[in-house]
Design a protein around this nucleic acid. Structure first.
Lengths: 343, 343
DNA sequence: ATTAGCACTCGTTTATAAAGAGTGCTAAAA
DNA sequence: TTTTAGCACTCTTTATAAACGAGTGCTAAT
């Protein structure tokens, strides 16, 4: 257990280091923060903190920097959430309140805005849409056997796919069934319809309406599946380059980190969180060694009752956690309320 | 005018430098390429070439590297186009021949493939689609006054937009007009229809069918306009980072270059070309100072008779032009034939 | 016209020294 | 017992100088 003074000093070191990016020494700390005990005392406490592996030296005669364990301790015990300025709250609310036809537009815009405000990289994962409902399903004939299937869902998204009808089939032979689908399925959750399709029930019903339902079912299923595909929005990707403390960066590392964020699966894995509030992971706690020098803050949100949405921030371990965490949770809350509209 | 030997030496310097990324000296050049004249002779010729500003020294006692004018001379007079290996031609043809529902999928895939094969950044600009035809236009009612407009075009693309009907209007009141549009407009070029709309003609006709055509026309126009929006595909964006000769790169520069390619307008401007074959521009010939150390190769292609498509490559000035130029024109040709399908 | 020879240049590497920031320890002060 | 002043010591950073080496330009010989 750390004494109050030790905690104070640890927090001070993290504060200083976060600001200046330089190892902080006892004298600097004393002068900078007007502490009422001497550099020598600070040195003594520092060697205790170092013993506890909460801070470390880059070399024998250097000042201290926080270790990853030190950040961890800080996050778990010392951090006091910054107040988000009223101005910022207003800004966030205003932006998010805007009118977006499509949920994806809103989420993309949110990611961009969060990235801008923090200077970090923002991730927004749309949840698996359990409650997403079918708004309409239509077939549109393009030419001869070319048909366009269009599925609209309650989040405003339109999924479409062209396909070729088997020779003997005409579009009009399908209209009954399209009508049936619209009568029966509109307003029902996509996921529910998908499971209906697996459970023989729908196929049986359909076969009364269509001669060869198999091909059609496959098409319908494909479009349904694509409409609930999980999607990832990223804002401020290039902020990932701002890890280095100097003006030059390692080409290979920079490339691999940026490449990592080109893979939606990888991003999804990175941002995953179970907790109900902001979760912070850093360095070796992250699932990839590529991000040893990064930290990720993640907060859940829900879309119209569906759980599983995540809004997250990625940045260098040395970052102003208090401020950033607070901003993130403000965004998460704003999304939570706004997204009740997209049921 | 350069003598044959001077040309030979200039080409040799460019070759060596392209391979090794190091200033090339007279002795190295002699040894490396088994030239039948001595280093001293080479030195004499070199000082002539330097006088002509085709090559330069980084400092007094260093070897020579090509100047931008040197590259220019090489490109204009000396470059012999490499043969693309049959294997590569086959690969390209095979990939492009694949079946793509949407033109944009094909172009995106092409950009990625070209980038992979060259290690550079590939740009593909879809031409202003003069001949793009309307395949179908439909309205789909979502709920009460929410309507989804869907426009399918001959390139396989589906453009959709939700909008809200004025209170007094019902979807069914529009069906006549949708039928009219499909009867009259399907198969006609989007651009033609757009100009019809500006020229009062269509509005007049429509007003016979709809009570308040203004709002509807605006919607139709918007969707039409979006369907012919020019689009840019980029492959291998991160290859832009591979300019530096060493393992470290300048953060600021790297960022601004990558940011540049986030703007479709900027990309479009960069790739613009009038010529009928591969155009190569480098350094100060490019429209932005950000790309002083880059070269751009651009080749036109057409989509079903529409001119204005461009496929381009961006990379460091020091690159194997012969090989890369040849690959690019192979791609352009492959696209030209393939795209006859998307009329 | 070509080439061997050689002095000269200038960036790069290696070596050495001085400066500076910060520590750890000891002994005195509180 | 806790805190602090003092000081020697460590290790990076910066500065200075010397040795190295790739490559040039010029001159004189081929």
């Amino acid at each position: 257990m750390l004494t109050d003074r030790q905690q104070l000093i640890l927090a001070a070191i993290i504060y200083e280091y976060t600001q200046t990016a330089r190892a902080v020494g006892s004298k600097t700390l004393h002068d900078q923060l007007n502490l009422e005990f001497s550099p020598a005392t600070i040195r003594n406490e520092m060697s205790f903190l170092e013993e506890a592996e909460l801070i470390k030296k880059l070399h024998t005669s250097a000042g201290r920097i926080p270790s990853k364990a030190g950040y961890r301790y800080y996050l778990d015990h010392l951090m006091v959430a910054d107040q988000v300025s009223d101005q910022d709250v207003a800004l966030i609310a205003q932006q998010i309140r805007g009118n977006f036809h499509e949920l994806d537009d809103l989420l993309g815009q949110t990611a961009r805005q969060l990235a801008d405000m923090t200077g970090l990289t923002a991730l927004v994962l749309k949840p698996k849409a359990i409650n997403l409902k079918i708004s309409s399903f239509q077939l549109i004939q393009l030419e001869r056997q070319q048909v366009l299937a269009v599925l609209a869902t309650s989040d405003g998204k339109v999924t479409s796919q062209t396909f070729r009808l088997p020779k003997e089939m005409t579009v009009s032979s399908l209209t009954d069934m399209v009508a049936y689908i619209n009568a029966q399925m509109v307003g029902r959750p996509v996921q529910e319809v998908l499971s209906l399709m697996n459970s023989e029930e729908l196929p049986v019903t359909l076969s009364r309406n269509v001669e060869s339902p198999a091909a059609f079912l496959q098409l319908f299923g494909e479009v349904l599946a694509r409409s609930v595909e999980e999607q990832v929005h990223i804002g401020g990707r290039l902020n990932l380059l701002e890890v280095a403390d100097d003006a030059y960066l390692n080409l290979k590392e920079a490339r691999s980190v940026l490449e990592l964020f080109d893979s939606p699966q990888a991003v999804r894995q990175l941002a995953a969180t179970q907790k109900q509030s902001v979760t912070i992971r850093l360095g070796q706690e992250l699932p990839t060694t590529l991000l040893q020098d990064y930290a990720i803050l993640a907060a859940p949100f829900s879309v119209g009752g569906d759980d599983g949405g995540v809004i997250a921030l990625v940045g260098p371990i040395r970052m102003p956690y208090a401020k950033v965490a607070r901003l993130l949770s403000t965004f998460a809350k704003a999304l939570d309320t706004k997204l009740l509209e997209y049921v």
